[in-house]
Design a protein around this nucleic acid. Structure first.
Lengths: 209, 209
DNA sequence: AATTACTTGATAAATATTTGACAAGTTTTT
DNA sequence: AAAAACTTGTCAAATATTTATCAAGTAATT
């Protein structure tokens, strides 16, 4: 799957949306769909749908369209969902707990096995079957467990330190960061900074008629 | 501020990032900054910085650069942060509670005054000074309180129903939706669908070296 | 079996976005 | 006071992204 170089980031960011809508179609027992129909549902042009999908292969058939189940599987594979991912959550506050409970993630193959926090009142607790460990034990944990992704749910001040510490073990592939700062990681470790406030601020902007 | 029509969505979505970085500069007592310096910090080209800001006005000065405090204020005004917003949260589960506690939102002028849920075990509780009301009382509440934005933190199944009900009162300006489905609202009501899973799936994609 | 209606994948055209270049103005240095 | 060093805002060029078009293939209809 080394087409990545050519595929635009814009197209890649649309893939999860395809995945969601295709799942809905499966749940509604829709067997096949044309780019026109899918575009109408998703708010894209038929042309864009075809262009996007053809970045990764010719999944459709002339005169027929796309087989929903098959396309769903293909998009899943493209996204890397043909394997599952081991996850730890750093920061067991409200957001960390919320993410740990999000069944959607687990259904998609992201399994949270442990949480970490510096707060002694949280350490030792078990939240929905997930243990909260002392953050100081993080290196040991990462050495003995295969963890793919760390969800960072700390405050702004700790986030980069946390990221640096877990990056140093190099047992981790990616950091999904919710702290309101842009984390940087060494080359080779994927980082996705989620800024909820940014999203909210665009709402404020758009409210002004 | 009727330039909106011309300004690209891409540029608008960058505004909150400017706002964050400018705040950091203020906190570090940086008085002025050039587009070159700001670009280096933010990972943009100097040209883009100037182009972005000039969508809204000429805030800089030749030979000097931009005054950080002034620019921060201007970007804030552009985003609509010269006023504050009243918020209610629909769905008092983990995510709803997490959002209600997010001090960052409050500092930026988004004040949560009430939460709503259908779960009788949650209704009547007070979480961090915020009362949880029965969702059936939502219309009455909206009639008697000026609410600008509803954070929807329900499950996928209820989200559109919730959105429709609160859209009907028409007392609300926007919906910020965290349920894993794309909510649609009547013309005039802003909706921002946040799909955390989409963000996570792009991480999975990028992990595959 | 032939015709008509669909629909893809590919290519070209049209848009949109980003980057580069530079005149003009400001600040600092000599 | 003049020269040198910066830096903006604007416009043009270069890229990137999206949309339209169409030949070619498939399915349904007559």
């Amino acid at each position: 799957m080394e087409k990545k170089d050519k595929v635009s980031m814009a197209a890649i960011r649309r893939l999860p949306k395809y995945y969601r809508y295709l799942k809905d179609l499966i749940d509604r027992d829709v067997e096949k769909i044309s780019s026109k129909e899918l575009g109408d549902i998703m708010g894209f042009t038929a042309s864009q749908i075809r262009q996007d999908l053809n970045n990764f292969g010719g999944f459709g058939q002339q005169g027929y369209g796309y087989n929903v189940k098959e396309l769903y599987g293909e998009v899943g594979k493209i996204l890397g969902l043909d394997k599952s991912y081991e996850v730890v959550i750093i920061g067991a506050g409200n957001l960390g707990q919320a993410l740990s409970n999000y069944t959607n993630f687990e259904k998609t193959g992201f399994n949270c096995k442990a949480m970490f926090d510096v707060n002694p009142r949280l350490v030792g607790m078990t939240i929905r079957d997930i243990k909260v460990y002392d953050f100081d034990d993080i290196e040991g944990y990462l050495e003995t467990h295969d963890v793919d992704i760390a969800f960072v749910c700390t405050n702004k001040e700790s986030a980069q330190d946390v990221a640096s510490r877990i990056s140093n073990t190099c047992k981790i592939s990616a950091i999904w960061n919710f702290a309101p700062t842009d984390i940087v990681t060494p080359e080779g470790i994927v980082v996705e900074n989620v800024h909820l406030i940014d999203s909210l601020l665009t709402v404020a902007y758009r409210i002004k008629d």
